[in-house]
Amino acid sequence: MSDPGNVVQRIAEQLEALSDAFGEDLWRELGRARSPRQKEQPRPKPGSASRAGAAVGPPLDIYVTPHEVVVEAVLPGLTGPHQVTVSLAGATELLIEAFLPDRLPDGLYIQRERFSGYCSRLVTLPASVRPVAVAGYQEGILQLRFQRTSPGSGSQGVAVLHVPPSAS
């Protein structure tokens, strides 16, 4: 059986190659201030907690509850679940791949800023999870809810879930 670390390393290398091809467009699409090329960070070792910051792909929000790890990925314009693939290597290495289709493939594009095509994101989850997720897609946001392998106290010791006072 392959070492999960090696598998993740290979995936990371392939994603880096893909980011060379798609990275600039993707980051422009996603409205980031910097592209991964500009960051020029050394590639972290597999399993390191900080790898998420150096990755390329859709922006993510991740939070932990006592029983779940919740991942939200910004993927506007998906038209079906067949356009998303989610893989888990080990208990914490999450790979999200998606294909964002052209909305109007028969139209004449006068201006094109939105990203379309293949994008992916590899991220280390903050807690171990089971390889089963409840998925939802709403308003262009893909939400994945993973059950934790062992219930904990929340993210970095933050166990309290509460609704913040009026978001506005």
């Binding site: 422009r28 699409e29 409205g31 201030a33 910004v74 993927l75 506007p76 314009g77 909305r103 109007l104 028969d106 139209g107 004449l108 594009y109 006068i110 201006q111 094109r112 800023e113 939105r114 990203f115 308003e139 262009g140 946001i141």
Partner: peptide, 27 residues
């Protein structure tokens, strides 16, 4: 920064129509 840049926009001509597409995830 999000306000300076605004959402990414496509402009597409199709027949006598001009179609604006904007990515607004989470809105």
């Amino acid at each position: 920064p999000a306000e300076r840049a605004g959402p990414p926009v496509d402009l597409v001509r199709r027949g006598d129509r001009l179609i604006l597409l904007a990515s607004l995830p989470g809105v």
